[in-house]
């Protein structure tokens, strides 16, 4: 942008578009009140409720075997679904951004499906397919395999729900970058794998990390789809969100809020990471992500 000329300085521009002071204060005040009421108060309430009965109760609720089992299961589901969706998302984004093929729009729509379908429906689909009365129910029982009301079902549901995050983050960036750099690398003699590793991947790494963070947050926090397929077996098929619900329904408020505070803490960490990575993504776009820049 050219430097503003003397006389028509930035101050004049601002003055020309600015609202009167009281309008500005009113708007900013309204936004802050809304944020406080709907975001900060509930967050503070979670930690307040969790710690209200003291550290001992808080710690006891967290190290209780069922709670630990829920934490383990949540971490397991995330540990399986996030890497898988990283690979799926990268492959899908690569195909969509760099190649033209029939059914590309259909694929794009399918990737968005988990966003548009209610998680409960997603869970029900898995019950219909893998449940005892479902399509593969008989076959699974003959081979003594359990999917629904067991860990595999929870992992499947989590993968389904978190599928779009990585792909959706990468596709716009990769499309904006075009394939000129890949072509340049190919002419210079790089193999397909070398192009991917040395050119494509470094160009999207921050957006990829951003997608993974969002994907992970959703994987750990997912309730609806997992609730349908889990069966709520304590100590076995309860994830953290499900465990919180069970505790809450049993009027164990302190314990419920203690486990909830773990999830909330995770969300805060995610937010900080997301903010940091976002800065890098922006820097990367400025530093020559797009074609011609």
């Amino acid at each position: 942008m050219p430097a503003p000329e003397a006389g028509a300085g930035p101050r004049d521009l601002v003055a020309a578009t600015a609202e009167p002071r009281w309008v500005r204060r009113l708007l900013i005040g309204t936004a802050l009140c809304f944020l406080a009421l709907f975001l900060f108060v509930p967050l503070a309430a979670v930690f307040y409720e969790a710690l209200r009965k003291g550290w001992d109760v808080y710690l006891a609720a967290i190290v209780e075997p069922d709670a630990l089992s829920a934490v383990r299961l949540t971490l397991l589901a995330a540990a399986i679904s996030v890497p898988l969706n990283l690979v799926f998302g990268l492959a899908a984004a690569w195909a969509i951004a760099k190649f033209d093929f029939r059914g590309k729009n259909l694929l794009l729509t399918l990737i968005d499906l988990p966003f548009s379908v209610s998680p409960v429906i997603a869970g029900l689909i898995f019950v219909l397919v893998f449940g005892l009365q479902g399509w593969f129910g008989g076959w699974l029982r003959e081979h003594d395999l359990k999917v629904i009301f067991a860990v595999p079902g929870i992992v499947l549901a989590t993968i389904f729900v978190t599928f779009p995050f990585v792909a959706r983050e990468l596709i716009p960036l990769m499309q904006a970058q075009g394939s000129e750099q890949e072509e340049a690398a190919r002419v210079l003699g790089a193999s397909g794998w070398q192009i991917f590793r040395r050119v494509t991947l470094p160009n999207v790494k921050w957006a990829l990390l951003y997608g993974v963070i969002l994907c992970n947050a959703r994987a750990m926090g997912e309730f609806g789809a997992v609730s349908v397929v889990s069966g709520h077996i304590r100590g076995q098929t309860n994830t953290m969100p499900l465990h919180i619900e069970v505790l809450y329904n049993e009027y164990q408020f302190a314990a419920a809020f203690a486990v909830a505070s773990l999830l909330a803490g995770l969300a805060l960490v995610t937010l900080v990471l997301k903010y940091l990575v976002e800065q890098r993504v922006k820097a990367q776009i400025r530093a020559g992500g797009g074609p011609g820049e």
Binding site: E180, Q181, V199, P202, N203, Q284, A287, G288, G292
Partner: peptide, 8 residues
């Protein structure tokens, strides 16, 4: 548009 590798 040069197609230089921006990260190198």
């Amino acid at each position: 548009h040069y197609a230089l590798f921006g990260h190198m």
